[in-house]
Amino acid sequence: MGGLESFKPAPVDAEQGEERVVLDDTSIHRALMRIAHEIVESNADLKLLYLVAIPNGGVPLARRLAQNLESLTGNAPRLGILDTTLYRDDLATRGTRPRLRRTEMPSSVDQSLVILVEDVVSTGRTIRAAMDALMDFGRPQSVQVVALVDRGHRELPIKIDYVGKNIPTQPGESVVFRSEPQDESSDEALEVVVQSLAGSDSGLNPSQGVGELA
């Protein structure tokens, strides 16, 4: 079914300050291969694996992880996309409603070993929302979490099972995962950058930064 994505105005980059790349395409792919090995090592019945990506950033990561798992085990795990927006704990206190993203869960999660895949985890609130959303799709045997980046500042008792890289950050900084090349000349598809925000209010732009919401 066609999406209405085409209606969306192109995202306007907030005024950016300093920016440094902390993970480039090669290191992201290496991290995802290592994580695939760790998943195989820690889960007995690989047929029960069900990768659930948290959009937007989790989707390309989960796809890559699924390919890696298939090449290691010969089985492609199930792959779903789960938007957590309607389960957020800050909807009542925000003035603006965040845009919804798509949810595509191909089957129930009953009895499966669910692996949530997120790009950047910080406070843990998105993972909390994702667990609530997940329970509406059944009763998984277990839930584990993959984060490409763990930037600390946890506010809830959430544990990350598989981490690409720990990147300690200052409150004024944001961590952004990009799955599209920034310019045509670059063939580096994936990267993670740390931005130190120029304006103190630019971090509140709701259409920006998957990172802030993590």
């Binding site: 999406g3 209405l4 994505e5 209606f7 969306k8 938007d83 309607l86 389960y87 909807l91 845009r99 919804l100 993203r101 798509r102 949810t103 595509e104 129930s108 609530d132 959303a133 509406d136 799709f137």
Partner: peptide, 23 residues
């Protein structure tokens, strides 16, 4: 367009077994 785009995402909830979100 924002309303239509949001409605398109809401359609998925109607296809679930549990047709309710806590929003």
């Amino acid at each position: 367009e924002l309303i239509l785009e949001t409605a398109e995402k809401m359609q998925e909830i109607g296809t679930r077994d549990v047709k309710k979100v806590p929003t």
